[in-house]
């Protein structure tokens, strides 16, 4: 079984993000870059499938600048077998899904696991787009996954607005990981040492024969509106008085 997982390079979730001076993007100075937390969960899940199945290959893919090598090394140190960096300049989710389609075909993957969203642009789109392009079943926002029939099918539990939904489908398929699917392991020291020797292939997106132009243009970016500062109340009585009087919500 071959499992393809993604690793997007994003700012650490603890980073305080600010819009840059000319309103074209974010202030990048001082940002610590990490693997998208949802992708880490996807990688962990692939590793667990491999461990359970005995035989499987976990291939980790990142689309973006060459800096993403760092995130691919993290995934390799966690235990992925090899990595593919597809260099592309500022791709939007549509472009990423086109690129991944080509990579999945080239690799003949049986299963693709992605994070449900990347915490930078918060789009929550690539997995669904990829599934459609491949004509594969999709299960998004999953919190449980069971592979059955020796890798022929899968059952997933999805976290949806109204509760938990269970779906089953044949493989190959695309699934997107939610927070509670697992708790990703840390890379061990031997893992980090081994990762240095694991293969990392570089592919230029321009060689894939696909449309690389963005379909979504970012015209401008702005910080959110500020909330007016509130105040501290001394006790429950003062709180109730404020909610009744000033705020008129009680």
């Amino acid at each position: 079984m071959k499992i393809l997982v993604t690793a997007k390079r994003v700012p650490d979730p603890e980073t305080k993000i600010k819009v840059n001076a000319d309103g074209t993007g974010i202030e990048e100075a001082g940002i610590k870059w990490v693997v998208n937390p949802f992708d880490e969960i996807a990688i962990e899940q692939a590793l667990r499938i491999k461990e359970a199945q005995g035989e499987a290959e976990v291939v980790i893919v990142s689309v973006g600048s060459s800096d993403s090598q760092e995130q691919l090394r993290t995934g390799l140190a966690m235990g992925a077998d090899r990595a593919i960096l597809v260099s592309a300049d500022n791709p939007d989710p549509t472009v990423v899904s086109r690129i991944l389609e080509k990579i999945v075909e080239k690799e003949s993957a049986d299963l693709v696991i992605l994070g449900k969203q990347a915490i930078d642009d918060d789009s929550n789109e690539v997995g669904q787009m990829l599934a459609q392009r491949l004509g594969w079943p999709q299960a998004t926002f999953i919190s449980e996954l069971e592979i059955a029939d020796g890798g022929g099918s899968a059952t997933c539990v999805r976290e949806i607005d109204g509760g938990l939904e269970t779906l089953s489908f044949p493989l190959p398929a695309v699934i997107t990981a939610d927070l509670r699917l697992n708790e990703p392991r840390y890379a061990s020291l031997p893992g980090i040492m081994k990762a240095r020797k694991k293969p990392m292939e570089e592919i230029d997106a321009a060689s894939l024969g696909i449309e690389l132009g963005r379909s979504v243009t970012i015209v401008s970016v702005e910080p959110p509106p500020e909330r007016a500062a509130g105040r501290v109340v001394k006790n429950v009585d003062e709180l109730i008085a404020a909610l009744q009087g000033e705020a008129k919500v009680l």
């Binding site: 700012p11 979730p13 305080k16 993000i17 600010k18 819009v19 974010i26 915490i119 930078d120 642009d121 918060d122 132009g213 963005r214 379909s215 979504v216 243009t217 970012i218 015209v219 401008s220 970016v221 702005e222 910080p223 959110p224």
Partner: peptide, 20 residues
């Protein structure tokens, strides 16, 4: 015809144009 959408956990609001 442009749209506004949040990014970075609502720390940034982007105005985007859909080119299709």
């Amino acid at each position: 015809g442009t749209f506004v959408r949040p990014m970075y956990a609502g720390n940034v609001f982007a105005t985007v144009k859909l080119e299709s």
